[in-house]
C-alpha cells in the first residue's frame, strides 16, 4: 500500500471491475442455489397453504419496504423506525374507528405521513444524519405511545364498523396481497415516471450535483419520507385489522425485514439506483427465508442472524460494484 497509490487518483481497472461483477454474480447464484435446495429439503414448504402464508407475510413487509425504497434511492440510507410507526399507526387506526372506517383509514394514513414526513423535513433541511434521527424518532414514538395508551393494547371502540374484510381472503387470496400489488404498481410508476421520482433518483446519485441543477432537495427528501410514512401507515392498518387491536410488540422485526427486502432486491445503499419492483422481489425472498427457518424450527434470533449476514454481504457487494464508493 504505497503512498503513491493514495496520492495519485485511483481508478478501478477494467479487469478489476469485471472481477467484482463476477463475484456478485457468483454470490447471487450461490445464494439462490442454497435457497432452492433448502425449499426442496424442507417438509411442508411446497404447499398452497404455505405459499399463502409466505405471500401474506411478504405483503405486509413489502408494503413498508415500498416506502423504504424511496428513502434508500434518495440517498438517505434507511429509516430505522418505520416498523414502530406502523405499529403506532395500527393503534391509531383502531382508536379512530369511532370516525367510521374511511375516517379511520384517512386519519391513520395522515398520521403516518406526518410523523415520518417531519423526520424527512428535518433531515432534508438540515442534513442531519438520517439513521440517528429515525432512531430518536422511534424512541419518541414508543414513549409517547406508552404514555397515551398506558402500555395496554388499544381495542376497537363499541359499534365500530366491520373491518374484517381488510384481512380476509378475496378470491382465495388474502386481501393484503392485493394491497401489496397495488402499492408496488403505484410505487413503481410513481418513482419511475413522475417528476418527483426522477428528482429522487438524481438527488440520490449526487446531492451536490442535484443542488447545482436546482433540484429542491428539501422538498424531495420530505416527499420520500412522506411516501414511506404512508406505506408504513397502510401496513399498520392491515396489522391492526389482523390483530383486531393495536400493540407495540407488532413492530419487532418489521423495520429490519423492510430494510433487508430493499437491499436483497438489489437497490443499492448508496442511492441513485434501484426500483420498487426489485424490492417486491426482495420482500418475497425475505419472507421465503423466514418461512423456511420457521418450518425448520428456528427461532427469531436465528432469523436475525441470517438476515444480518445477508444484509452485510449485500452491502459489501453493492459497494464493491459501485465506482462512486470509497473515499480517499
Amino acid at each position: 500500500m504505497s503512498v503513491v497509490e493514495d496520492v495519485l487518483p485511483s481508478r478501478f481497472s477494467i479487469s478489476g471491475m469485471d472481477a467484482r461483477r463476477k463475484i456478485t454474480l457468483l454470490v447471487t447464484i450461490l445464494f439462490f442455489a442454497i435457497l432452492i435446495f433448502a425449499t426442496v429439503t424442507t417438509t411442508g414448504f411446497y404447499s398452497v397453504q404455505n405459499f399463502k402464508a409466505i405471500i401474506t407475510a411478504a405483503a405486509i413487509v413489502g408494503i413498508i419496504a415500498v416506502g423504504m425504497t424511496y428513502i434508500v434511492i434518495s440517498g438517505n440510507l434507511f429509516s430505522l423506525s418505520v416498523g414502530i410507526t406502523a405499529a403506532v399507526s395500527a393503534s391509531t387506526f383502531i382508536w379512530a374507528l369511532r370516525f367510521g372506517l374511511v375516517g379511520a383509514i384517512i386519519i391513520a394514513v395522515v398520521f403516518g405521513a406526518v410523523v415520518i414526513g417531519l423526520q424527512g423535513l428535518l433531515i432534508g433541511f438540515t442534513g442531519a444524519n438520517p439513521i440517528i434521527v429515525t432512531i430518536a424518532a422511534g424512541a419518541l414514538q414508543e414513549a409517547v405511545a406508552i404514555w397515551i395508551t398506558g402500555g395496554v393494547s388499544v381495542y376497537p371502540p363499541e359499534n365500530s364498523p366491520s373491518f374484517a374484510f381488510l384481512v380476509s381472503p378475496l378470491f382465495g387470496i388474502p386481501f393484503p396481497v392485493y394491497v401489496f400489488v397495488v402499492a408496488v404498481v403505484l410505487g413503481e410508476v410513481f418513482i419511475k415516471r413522475s417528476r418527483f421520482g426522477r428528482g429522487i433518483y438524481l438527488m440520490g446519485e449526487s446531492p451536490r450535483a442535484g443542488r447545482t441543477a436546482g433540484l429542491p432537495i428539501t422538498r424531495l427528501t420530505t416527499g420520500a419520507f412522506v411516501v414511506a410514512g404512508v406505506c408504513a401507515a397502510v401496513a399498520g392498518i392491515l396489522i391492526g385489522a389482523f390483530n383486531q387491536s393495536g400493540t407495540m410488540t407488532a413492530s419487532r422485526t418489521l423495520t429490519i425485514d423492510a430494510i433487508s427486502a430493499v437491499l436483497v432486491g438489489g437497490t443499492a445503499v448508496i442511492g441513485g439506483r434501484g426500483s420498487v419492483v426489485r424490492t417486491a422481489i426482495g420482500a418475497i425472498v425475505i419472507a421465503t427465508i423466514s418461512d423456511l427457518l420457521l418450518l425448520r424450527g428456528y427461532s427469531t434470533p436465528v432469523q436475525l442472524l441470517v438476515l444480518g449476514v445477508i444484509v452485510t454481504v449485500v452491502v459489501i457487494l453493492s459497494y464493491l460494484n459501485s465506482e462512486r464508493a470509497g473515499r480517499s
Binding site: 448508496i270 442472524l305 464493491l320 464508493a325
Partner: peptide
Amino acid sequence: LKINSMALTLGGYLVALGL
C-alpha cells in the same frame, strides 16, 4: 473495502444480536 461504516455495522448489529 472502503464501505460506509453505518451501513456495514447495521448488518453487524443484526449478526451480533442474532448470535
